[in-house]
C-alpha cells in the first residue's frame, strides 16, 4: 500500500498536525528533500570526530550538550569538524532549547542546502513530539474490508464476507450508544511495532452503506458522540453464516489469534443465523475481553472451580 510521502517543507507549512515550534534559519533551498525515516540522530559523537555509523540521513538533533561542545572547540578544530560534518548529505539539523549555531555553521548549511531549524522545545520533548508527528508516515499500513466499532472502549474489528451483516451489526451497536470508527474500509496502521490503529478512508469517514437505505451519514444522524476518528484494535470478530456441521467454540478456554501486519490479536468467530442477536453477543465479547485483560477469565475460572470440586470429591471417597 502506498504511503503518503513527507518532505522537510511539510514541517513548517502546517501539514503535520503537531506544532514542533520550528523556525528555519538556514538551508531554505533544501526544504524539498523527502524525509525517509522517523528515527533521529544526536550528532554528539560526530562532533567529536567519530563518523563511523553516522546516520546522516536522519534529522540531526543538537541539544544543549552538542551546542555547548561546539562553542568550546578551538576555532581551527571547529572549522575542520564542521567541514567534515557538512561533507555528508545530511537531512536537516534542529537546535533545541531555542539555541542557535554559530555563523560558520549557518554558512556551511546554506552552501550545502541543508535546512537548519531552531525549536523552543527541550530535546527529549522535541524528539518525542517529532516521532509522534511523523511516525504515521512510515508505519506499515494495510486496508481491510470490515467495520471498526468502539464497544465499551474495546476496539472491535468486525470481519466477514460481503452481505453477512457487518454494517447492520455496526449500525445496531451505534444505536446502542457505541461508536463507529470505520465501515467497509478500515485503514490499519502498525504503530510502535505493537499496536494496530484503525481509521476510515478519509473521503467516506463516518458514512455507511446499509442495504435498502443507501448511504447514511452516521455523525449527522446519531451525533458526534456516535463516532470517533481512530481507535486501537483490541479484538477481531469474524461473522460467518451458521454452518450446521461446523464445530463452534463452546467453552472459550482456548484463545484464538488473528494476525494483521504480524501482530496477533484476540479472535472470535461468531456464527450468524436469522433471529440471533449479534450486537448483544459482540457487546458481551467486548466486556469479556476487558475482563480477561483485568485478570478474570470466566471460562478458565469456572473450569478451575470444577476441577477443585472434583479433587475434593475424589479425596472424600478415598
Amino acid at each position: 500500500m502506498a504511503l503518503k510521502k513527507i518532505y522537510l517543507h511539510n514541517l513548517v507549512d502546517g501539514t503535520i498536525k503537531i506544532d514542533l515550534q520550528l523556525e528555519l534559519i538556514a538551508g531554505e533551498n533544501g526544504l524539498d528533500k523527502e524525509i525517509t525515516v522517523a528515527d533521529v540522530n544526536r550528532p554528539g559523537l560526530s562532533l567529536a570526530g567519530f563518523f563511523d555509523f553516522f546516520a546522516f540521513g536522519r534529522i540531526q538533533v543538537f541539544g544543549l550538550g552538542e551546542t555547548a561542545f561546539m562553542r568550546k572547540l578551538p576555532e581551527a578544530q571547529r572549522k575542520e569538524m564542521l567541514e567534515m560534518f557538512f561533507s555528508y548529505d545530511i537531512l536537516c539539523c534542529v537546535f533545541t532549547h531555542g539555541e542557535s549555531p554559530d555563523d560558520l555553521f549557518i554558512e556551511l548549511a546554506n552552501s550545502r542546502n541543508i535546512p537548519v531549524f531552531i525549536s523552543q522545545y527541550r530535546t527529549t520533548r522535541f524528539v518525542s513530539l517529532w516521532i509522534h508527528a511523523v511516525e504515521g508516515y512510515f508505519a506499515p499500513t494495510i486496508t481491510v474490508h470490515g467495520s471498526l466499532v468502539d464497544v465499551f472502549g474495546v476496539g472491535v474489528l468486525l470481519l466477514g464476507k460481503s452481505g453477512v451483516g457487518k454494517s447492520e451489526c455496526a449500525l445496531e451497536l451505534i444505536e446502542k450508544g457505541h461508536r463507529l470508527v470505520a465501515d467497509d474500509i478500515v485503514e490499519i496502521q502498525k504503530i510502535d511495532e505493537i499496536f494496530l490503529f484503525g481509521k476510515s478512508a478519509e473521503i467516506i469517514t463516518h458514512h455507511m452503506e446499509i442495504r435498502g437505505l443507501g448511504i447514511i451519514n452516521v455523525k449527522e444522524i446519531y451525533g458526534i458522540a456516535s463516532v470517533r476518528n481512530r481507535k486501537r484494535i483490541d479484538l477481531i470478530i469474524m461473522l460467518e453464516e451458521w454452518e450446521r456441521n461446523k464445530e463452534y467454540d463452546r467453552l472459550g478456554i482456548d484463545e484464538h489469534k488473528y494476525s494483521i501486519l504480524d501482530i496477533n490479536l484476540s479472535f472470535i468467530t461468531v456464527p450468524v443465523r436469522p433471529g440471533r442477536n449479534i450486537p448483544i453477543l459482540i457487546e458481551t465479547a467486548a466486556l469479556n475481553h476487558r475482563l480477561k485483560k483485568t485478570g478474570t477469565f470466566s471460562a478458565k475460572d469456572l473450569d478451575f472451580k470444577i476441577q477443585e470440586k472434583i479433587k475434593l470429591e475424589t479425596a472424600k471417597k478415598e
Binding site: 500500500m1 486496508t143 467497509d184 474500509i185 452503506e209 448511504i215
Partner: peptide, 15 residues
C-alpha cells in the same frame, strides 16, 4: 494506485 477496494461495496468504490 495500489489501493484496493471491494467492487461489491459502494463505499469501497467511492473511497
Amino acid at each position: 494506485d495500489d489501493i484496493e477496494a471491494n467492487a461489491k461495496s459502494i463505499m469501497g468504490v467511492l473511497a
